[in-house]
Amino acid sequence: MWRFMRDRLLTTLLTVWGASTLAFLVLRLLPGDAITNQMLQGGASPATIAARRAAMGLESPLPIQYVRFLLDLIRGDLGYSYLTQQPVNALIGEQLGATISLASAALFIAIILGLALGMIEALYWPRWPGQIASALNVLALAAPIYWTGTLAIYVFSTQLSLLPATGSGSPIHLLLPAGVLGFHVAGSIARVTRTSLRRIQEAPFVRTAYAKGLRSSQILFSHVLRASFPPILSIIALQTGFLLGGTVITEMIFVRQGIGQLLQHAVIDQDYPVVLGVVVLAAITYSVVNTLADIGHGLLDPRLRLAEES
């Protein structure tokens, strides 16, 4: 366990360092930045802009800027927004809660829906419940969020007045955006669930279980599901990462605050310290989620645990 934690911590640090370094380099390679743009828009002269950039340390040589960035990063300081001069930590902190709410609600819906659709399709195909599950699954894979989102607002909010479409005041406000985002993510989970389930169904131990006289439901829930879970866990871990991408559009369409909006604006406005901050956050998130997934793999599959320990 100790070794596992130590290794994980190391890979996490490596990921954060690698991602932020890559992002740092890419962002410095890109032409332009937020300060210059905003000041030009205000009518500043090139000399004024250069002075301002120098004051912010942007005219120093790249290696010096990089070392400065790394030292700050080690102290947990992500720097200041070019545009608002606020600490990036604070900017991210303000938006994190809303995105965690949206993403976890969406993930919850996606897991339930994905597992259900995947199981129904695996077990009932080609009968009608399987067919319906299959059709929903394809729709989840095929419909872009901007379409399902707008359609959901139109149907549930504008036409039926059932649910609020925009804002973030209460859990009810979460239902539509989390449902749309969750439906989108459920498609991948359902597919992997079905694939994995069917693979395990064919395993000899299922026959053994039948031979021992266990009922289908017992076998399904106590043996098959458990054994088919590792790839499902992997895809769930992966999707957690992809949720960030999904939140960009979901937050925009449903008028919600969050990391997605922060990132989108920072990218378009070229507010690079903020972009870097979000990359660092994403790297930490991935590492944590993958650590959890690996722990999960170990718990579910004793063979893996043995292999690790030996």
């Binding site: 890979t11 690698g18 390679l29 032409p31 960009v248 990132l263 990218v267 990359v279």
Partner: peptide, 26 residues
């Protein structure tokens, strides 16, 4: 495994949007 997967995590940690922006800029 660890190095490769850390490399993959680095790529995964890169928001899609930023990948889009970077490829377009390059």
């Amino acid at each position: 495994d660890r190095l490769l997967m850390a490399g993959m995590d680095i790529l995964l940690a890169f928001p899609n949007l930023l990948l889009g922006l970077a490829t377009i800029a390059l």
